[in-house]
Design a protein around this nucleic acid. Sequence first.
DNA 1: TCGTAAATGCAAGTGATTATCATTTAGAAA
DNA 2: TTTCTAAATGATAATCACTTGCATTTACGA
Lengths: 140, 140
Amino acid sequence: MNIDVLLEKTGLKKTYPRKIILGLFEDRDQFLSADDIAKVFQEAGHPVPLSTIYRILDQFVEKHLVSEVHIETAQVKLYERAHAHHAHHLICTECEKIIHVESCPVHDYESDLEDTHGFKVTHHTLNFYGLCEACQKAHA
Amino acid sequence: MNIDVLLEKTGLKKTYPRKIILGLFEDRDQFLSADDIAKVFQEAGHPVPLSTIYRILDQFVEKHLVSEVHIETAQVKLYERAHAHHAHHLICTECEKIIHVESCPVHDYESDLEDTHGFKVTHHTLNFYGLCEACQKAHA
DNA sequence: TCGTAAATGCAAGTGATTATCATTTAGAAA
DNA sequence: TTTCTAAATGATAATCACTTGCATTTACGA
Ligand SMILES: [Mn+2]
Ligand SMILES: [Mn+2]
Ligand SMILES: [Zn+2]
Ligand SMILES: [Zn+2]
């Protein structure tokens, strides 16, 4: 969907930093940190401070344009375009690539947990770590 | 197993801070942060600086006496006694209680991932968030 | 008992993220 | 189109968990 239309829907003003940032997520479907985004502005010759970038990311998460991705091995917060469906991630420990997987193997298991532990599950997080196809070949 | 024996096996010297910290994990099987541990020393009237605590936790993780638990909603590092088997956690979003579960519902799924995404999984992390039994009752 | 590497304690440093606040601006109203 | 104002930005300082450097102490083997 169009960047301007998406921003209008949220009620957020259409500013230069917001349009660029949302464009990065919408167009290229990347996993980005605040610092990655700062570099893009830097290289475009129009630096934007990290404080602004962090504020915008928070707002985008709140408006469900973007979601935070928790990667245990990363020491910084990562964000990706929000997806319609609950998903999981495959993280390559060699090249840091992240693969988004829109299927979930533990949906049924959640009701088991309610029976065995009396625990009512609202959501879960599941990450797989290993080697992507390219890095496996490089190792072979 | 005895605290002293465990420390001897690792080759680490048996010092006061190490014995107390290892005891917390072994005896009570708790989930603890560096700050939680600092409070214990404080209350015992024998304060130990956080730098020492962090150093010891790192060593215990390296020696497999303790393992780090990644909880997305916690802003600090948490540690628990190392267990023999791969496990998962149920985290109560109300009272912060953590339940350790020694069963895994995604073991088979990992080979599927290799087929569908060419991704070779080495390990994974899985956390369930929700309400524990006590907090469900309190809400009802 | 001694010698020494290991461990500790204190203080200062890091680095990602957040908060403060003066200035600017998008966008609605006149 | 001009004016107005809440929202947004940018510069700077603050936080806070964690780490590091270094001088002093200590466990423990010789
Ligand atoms: Mn899932
Ligand atoms: Mn598992
Ligand atoms: Zn890779
Ligand atoms: Zn609870």
